[in-house]
């Protein structure tokens, strides 16, 4: 914490103020709030990943089955790649908006949302497969932890898709496209989206690839 303080001790809080009352740190309230929220999200996912790691190696007695026996690595690799690329389209959408290119913004926002949907559908398919093959939430704690972790991540993706599509809807509906201020919303949704992506980067390796 003292590091955060340091910035502020050396520069006066009112350096950037010309008039009225604005952000003492020079970072928009919403953006600052978003970064703190994302920082806190590490603890959410940290707990879930830890659960999985704790249970994945335990012995649940004879005849028990483990999520690792069900993984379809080629399939998950593709959906991981899809999510990774959606981060690219997201950042392109934001870059286009900064340039003032409303058309491209619209396209890339839609593309990001679509890629997100593809990822979620893939996860839905994966879950269905697992359940059909006999791995259920109720099977054992390792299975419970797997479903809760990936499910919780999946819900994050769904929320992101909803946000993206509603932004896209606005950019289509509004005559001049997104306003510069809505650029901040795009930026915030982008931060959230990239965060969901980096969490998957970790999950992909820690849960799926490390044996």
């Amino acid at each position: 914490m003292s590091d955060i303080v340091h910035d502020d001790l050396t520069e006066s809080a009112d350096d950037h103020d010309s008039h009225g009352h604005h952000e003492s740190t020079g970072v928009d309230n919403r953006k600052l709030g978003m970064w703190f929220f994302l920082s806190s999200e590490f603890l959410f996912f940290g707990t879930l990943i830890t659960n999985y790691l704790l249970f994945k190696g335990r012995d649940f007695g004879p005849g028990s089955i483990y999520p690792v026996e069900f993984y379809d690595i080629p399939f998950t690799s593709i959906s991981s790649f899809v999510l990774l690329m959606s981060s690219l389209t997201m950042v392109l959408a934001h870059a286009a908006l900064v340039r003032g290119d409303q058309n491209q913004t619209r396209t890339w926002l839609a593309a990001t949302g679509m890629l997100g949907l593809v990822f979620v559908s893939g996860q839905f398919f994966e879950f269905t497969e697992f359940v059909n093959e006999g791995l259920k939430l109720t099977t054992n704690p390792a299975a419970s932890a797997f479903f809760l972790l990936t499910g919780f991540h999946g819900i994050h993706v769904v929320v992101g898709v909803v946000l993206l599509l509603s932004l896209w809807g606005k950019s289509v509906r509004q005559p001049g496209g997104l306003s510069p201020e809505q650029g901040l919303s795009v930026e915030l949704v982008g931060l959230y989206w990239h965060f969901v992506d980096i969490i998957w980067i970790v999950i992909f390796v820690v849960v799926y690839l490390i044996q």
Binding site: T25, G26, V27, L32, W35, L38, S39, F42, G46
Partner: peptide, 17 residues
Amino acid sequence: EKPMLSRVFSIGAVLAL
């Protein structure tokens, strides 16, 4: 971004880790 945001973000990451 301002270095402050990196610190904000890394507090959560480092703490969780």
